[in-house]
Each structure stands twice: as C-alpha cells, then as structure tokens.
Simulated scan of single mutants.
Amino acid sequence: MLFIKMEDLKVGMRLAKPIFNKNGVLLYDRDTKITAQGITSIKNFGLLGLYILEPAEPLPPLSEEEREFERFQTMSVFSLKNDLKFLIQNKKTKNLKGLAEDIIKKYGSLKDKINFIQDIRSTEDYLFKHSLNVAMLSALISKKLKIDQPRTLDIVLTALVHDVSHLKLKPNLMNKFEGFDEKELEEVRKSRTEAINSVEVNKETSVKVTKLLTQIHRGLDELYNTKTNVFPRISVDASIVLTAEAYDRLTTMRLNKNPISEISAIRMLMSMPKAFSEQVVKALIDSIYILPPGLCVELSNGEKGLVINENSEDIQRPMVLGFKDNQIYDLGNNKVFKQIQIADVMKTMDNRFVIDRKLLEEFRRI
C-alpha cells in the first residue's frame, strides 16, 4: 500500500480505501481503478492524497466495523469543521451538540474494544481530524469509567472544541502545538482566552465545558511547552480529554512527522502518572486494541513474531509466535518475560493490522 499525493495520481491506480462524501455516501469503493474524471472529482474534495494499492497487491480485508468507522469520521469531520469556524466567529453552531451525542451513541456505548484506525493528515485538516478522534476516544474512556451521560456529554463537547483556539492564530502557528517561544506562547494563550469566551456564550456548550477547557490548557502547556515538572491538579474529566489528546497526537500520521506505535504511546502515558491518571490510561487500554491477535511485532531479541493471544491483565505480555522457528513465547510467564519483551510493532501504512483470521486460528493450534 502506498500513499500518493493528489498531484501524482495516475489513471488506472487502484484505491486501497473507500471514499465517502460529507453525507456518508460511498463515492468510490476499494479496488476501484480511478479514471481521469475521477481524479478531477477527487481533487475537489481537498484531500492531500490517497492510499493506493500496488499493482500486484491483493485487496486487504476490511471489516464492516472499520468501514463504518471511516464513513463516520468523514461525515463528522465535515460537520465539525463548519461548527468550529462558526464558534470562533461567535456565530451560532449548528450541530456541535448533535455530533457529540452521535459520538456517545456510537462509541460511548460499546462493550468490546475497537480497532482505532488512524489516517494521514494534512496541515489543512489536522485540527479537525485530531479533535474528532480525541472526542471519540474520550467517549470510549468515559464508558469504561462508567461516567453518566450528562458528564460524558460535557467531556466529549470539550474534546471537540479543545483546540479551536488554533483557528484564531496566524497561519505559521495554526498547526504548531509545541515548542513555542515566549512570544508565540503569549499569542497562544491570548487565543485560548478568546476561544473560551466564544465557548462560554455558545448555546450548545455549558459552563462545565469552559472549566474543563481551562484545566486542559494548563495541562497542555506543561506537557508541550513550559515543562516545569509541576503538573497542575486536574479533574478526572479533564484527564480523560488530555489522555485522549496525547494518545492521538502521538500515534497520528502526518507528512511532516512520523507517528509512534500504539504500544510506545501507551508506555509513554504510563511513564507519566502525574500527568495521566492511571485509571484513565487503563480505561483507554481497555477500549482499543493495542497488541491484538494478528499483529506482527518486533521482539527484544531481534526476532519478529505474531501475537496469537492477548494478555488481559497486562497488554505488554501477550503470547507471541516467533517467525524464525515457530516457537511460542508466552510473555505472561515471568521467566520468559525476563528474557524477551515486545520492542515495537509492525503495521500497514494506514496503521491497521491485517491478517487472515483462518490463518491466525491455525497458528493458535500449533
């Protein structure tokens, strides 16, 4: 699978991922060969590029859950983009609360884990895709923590608007999120104050949202800018958004910055208990797949292998089938774990693990 920029698309290339319009209608399915007319049409969507299958590459599996996930993301980003621009102009938002409720309905009521698919982002759509993903993760975490619906709604609304202040910044700062100098940080803080004022008068948000935003902004400053190692005291609700924010930022794919793997991101969050509540990080781990069966991994002994069983008690210690000699490593066994650990994971370009499920069952029977 390759990522091809819009200007480099050629007639006959096969799509690796479906393309939906802002209403969620499927326009081009996977494995579709794009035409000259199709390229012209797709360019009008404002996309940075497309995932393309290589000439002899078979079509990878895509579950209905994953297809719906991508459809919902596409629809929601269009909706959120309009509302955040209305919000920052002190205009009435149209569907901000409705979007939050839809997110809670879809992802705040799930019993099982989901495969949280990331996608490459451009400077034009990073803020909107990031805010949406933070809201979805916040809904998942809130569910695991058994937070009631009114509180969850405030948390998800806060996640949707937590970065809206960046729309008030100059273009050179709009997509910068860390490493500000003092002058830049002053501009960022000024824009945050103005954004909070806009949120405060918006009829679709609440006073609780503005309070959560204030806490989150203090946390973001400590994480990415001031770094005094004196992390501010924040509520569980604010910690949910901050944890989701950090996880998405660490694992997202951007053209100008490589992501880290999900397990590396989780390890980073776990290493900073003052910044990220242990119970919130645990709820995140229980909400999404980190090291699921079917995932290829790199082991600390230099070998590569396949996860064949998760470890529900400690995600870092699954059962792994080594590729070298088909040896099974049970990392849940303390003796084995002292010798071998998961170093990192191997992924497809769209950050999704792909394996034939029947083949996986055969490995499990070895």
Rank of each mutant, 00 (worst) to 15 (best):
I103K: 01
S79F: 06
K105L: 03
L84E: 02
E101A: 08
K106H: 02
I104E: 09
R71Y: 09
L87G: 15
E70W: 09
K85E: 14
N95A: 11
E64K: 02
R71E: 14
F72I: 03
K94D: 10
E64S: 04
K81G: 07
M75L: 07
I88E: 12
S63P: 03
Y107E: 00
L96E: 01
S63V: 11
G108R: 01
S79Q: 10
F86D: 15
E65L: 01
M75R: 03
F69H: 09
S109F: 10
F69C: 05
T93N: 10
E68K: 09
Q89H: 14
R71S: 08
D83E: 06
K105G: 03
E64D: 07
K91C: 07
K92Q: 13
L87D: 13
L80S: 03
G108T: 02
K94Y: 10
N90A: 12
V77A: 08
I103D: 00
F86E: 13
I88P: 14
D83C: 08
F78G: 07
N90P: 12
S76M: 06
V77K: 06
I103L: 01
I104T: 08
F72L: 04
K92I: 10
E65K: 00
M75A: 05
K105Q: 05
K106T: 01
F72M: 05
K85R: 15
K97E: 10
D102A: 09
V77W: 04
E70G: 09
K81I: 08
L80I: 05
S109C: 12
F72H: 03
K105T: 03
L80M: 06
E68R: 09
K97W: 08
L80R: 03
L80C: 05
K97F: 11
T74M: 02
F78N: 11
D83L: 06
L62I: 15
I88G: 13
N82V: 14
R67G: 07
K97N: 13
G98M: 13
L84V: 08
F78T: 09
N90E: 15
S76I: 04
K97L: 12
N82Y: 12
F86K: 15
D102T: 05
T74D: 04
K85L: 14
K105H: 04
L96K: 00
K105N: 05
N82S: 14
I88Q: 13
Q73S: 15
I103V: 00
S79C: 08
G108W: 02
L84N: 06
V77E: 07
